[in-house]
Design a protein around this nucleic acid. Structure first.
Lengths: 235, 235
DNA sequence: CGCACGCTTGACTTCTCTCAAACGCAGTGG
DNA sequence: CCACTGCGTTTGAGAGAAGTCAAGCGTGCG
């Protein structure tokens, strides 16, 4: 593992009150007084591609708000292979399951350099206990995760390899918001779409040849949304 | 639709305090005083196979606790077909997303006659606002749903048709707890495993011929768990 | 410069889908 | 009582898609 060591930089104590994306995140509804309840520091951390937020089975001590970057949540399958069950971008929360006690369900690995806020379990628990304003956001985040999981299943795991890939491109597009899009390694694409690396590679290559996507630089693509939409629906 | 009409029987106002499976359900931690907060009646309803708890897109006015029976949550795919994203049995909660506002994400249809408790949104919201004892259970239920969704993806949507079917049998076994197991229609099996009805049928027929499962009566099976375990892992 | 790693491509096998027909059971009506 | 009929299941044959194994390519890094 070339990049095994923790490529993480501690950036200091986060200032939630002045957070630029606060309306997107878990603490959206908190008010001045609520922040007085935070007695354990919330840290802001930058993690390089390849680094981990946590590993499946680790004892859950913190949840994470993703400020920027891209993170994959993966699970290990019966046969040892890995399956990517979700991609998280700006505004998402990772590791909420620590609030339900116990260990992390997934391994969370960074795909594109990520700026995250580390929310110690006790902070979230305390806020949740003492102010009702967090409840709504927590519900929203849970429900959002679940919705994402269900869409993942219906969108990225049905139809032919090409249909799934087209849907993945579109998913990535409105996850990151901007073009061109940085695609993942072929192995990851396979792990998302339930395909082998080879089939994923073939499908991407096909798209490139047919001009449905255009590679502007290594693994960065500009999309022809109309054609992707049609492909996603099945021709 | 022969059974289209609402095959539901209203059984009366539920008595949560004396509920036999209360330690399994959402209200597990509530105390005597908390029940005073319930001003809108919680109804107990029996729904026949084929009936719906709610339909995707309906305005969400209640969540449901499942006391017994089996319920499928389904979503409609881009091409109009339906996809089953979860199965709910005793102790599960359906329609929690109403707490996050908005409409139901799925259609919830009954597979095996179900006894459910209807929890009006305002009841859950009020309890959640006024007593912290519901929080933990709500977290637990959310987290449980999400875990189930992820397992669904990794277990029932990877590997060959036979592997998936084997895993489905095992899933059903520890969902209902007892043998023999009532299997679903082949179309539903297909909608769960991302297979066509024909492939699902062939796989089930194979299992019967090889004695991995034994049909004791129409669509009721006794399982050879050891062999299913081995099949699930891939021979 | 050369090695390593990930991506691409090819040939072949295997599995699943598709289309079509036959079967079996249950309910209906003569 | 039995033929008729509707619906879900089973089975078959052939086409098509993805998996497998193996080799070749390209880029970046030591």
């Amino acid at each position: 593992m070339k990049r095994g060591q923790i490529d993480a930089a501690w950036l200091g104590k986060a200032e939630c009150k002045t957070c630029g994306i606060r309306d997107l995140v878990l603490f959206a509804d908190l008010q001045e007084a609520d922040f007085q309840l935070i007695h354990v520091p919330i840290e802001e951390v930058l993690i390089e591609a390849g680094g981990f937020l946590y590993q499946a089975g680790d004892d859950g001590v913190a949840a994470y708000t993703i400020r920027s970057g891209l993170i994959k949540l993966m699970q290990y399958m019966p046969d040892g292979g890995q399956r990517i069950v979700r991609l998280l971008g700006s505004g998402s929360v990772a590791g909420l399951e620590v609030l339900a006690g116990g260990a992390y369900e997934h391994s969370a690995q960074v795909l594109q350099p990520a700026l995250v806020c580390r929310l110690p379990r006790e902070v979230v628990e305390r806020l949740n206990r003492e102010t009702p304003r967090l409840h709504r956001q927590l519900m929203a985040k849970w429900s959002q995760s679940l919705k994402l999981a269900d869409e993942w299943l219906t969108d990225l795991n049905t139809g032919t390899a090409r249909q799934r890939l087209a849907r993945l491109f579109l998913h990535l597009a409105n996850l990151t918001g901007e073009e061109p899009i940085r695609l993942l390694g072929r192995e990851d694409v396979g792990a998302i779409l339930s395909l082998t690396t080879e089939t994923a590679s073939r499908a991407v290559a096909d798209f490139k040849r047919q001009g449905v996507v255009t590679e502007v630089s290594t693994n960065c693509f500009r999309l022809d949304r109309d054609r992707l939409d049609r492909l996603a629906a099945g021709e």
